[in-house]
């Protein structure tokens, strides 16, 4: 089983019905699986902060949802996270990391080093997973924290999990 399948199975087990995302190469297979799943509505966003609103609306309507994004997207969300914080909406966010490990593109470094403290400051409990064998367990715990605990939970998927991008250089 590939590590992303551990997230997908956790979404299924938790009866997640909406998956909002801005694409990232690290999430590509998971996004594809969500689009193919008739029980899940996959929602492509123009910017990550939309996802925070979408998931609030989902919860108001009785659906569980999650947000998939790359580390650079976290910076786009900071004010919108206040919606989840103030209203205590459950919020489960899966972040594929860039700018963390063998990064080719220096423009990824600022958010790569800021995601964990930024999310923590915004009110999330944040975990990082870097061993493929642990991803399923961490994904289940993240969803449990959000939907059973009613809180903001972020799982950072270490850059070790995703192929090194070299842009052909």
């Amino acid at each position: 089983m590939e590590w992303w399948q551990g997230i997908y199975q956790a979404l299924k087990d938790a009866e997640v019905r909406q998956v909002a995302y801005v694409p990232d190469a690290g999430h590509a297979k998971l996004i594809e699986a969500c689009h193919a799943d008739k029980e899940i509505t996959a929602i492509s966003l123009t910017t990550e902060e939309e996802g925070v609103g979408v998931l609030a609306g989902a919860w108001l309507g009785g659906d569980r949802g999650v947000l998939l994004m790359q580390s650079s997207g976290v910076g786009n969300c900071i004010n919108m996270f206040s919606l989840a914080k103030t209203c205590q909406f459950p919020l489960a966010v899966f972040v594929t990391m860039r700018g963390q490990w063998k990064e080719f593109n220096p423009w990824q470094l600022p958010m790569g080093s800021t995601v964990d403290p930024a999310m923590t400051t915004a009110g999330f409990s944040v975990n990082t997973v870097d061993d493929p064998a642990d991803v399923a367990d961490y994904a289940q715990a993240t969803l449990h924290h959000a939907f059973v605990g009613g809180e903001m939970a972020g799982l950072l998927l270490h850059q070790k999990l995703t192929p090194v991008k070299t842009f052909g250089k």
Partner: peptide, 22 residues
């Protein structure tokens, strides 16, 4: 009714999630 006191720029997004769920 769900009136917002913040989350500027997010109102339609909330509607998207709600309309999807209902």
């Amino acid at each position: 009714s769900f009136p917002l006191w913040g989350a500027m720029g997010g109102t339609v997004a909330i509607g998207i999630g709600l309309a999807t769920a209902q």
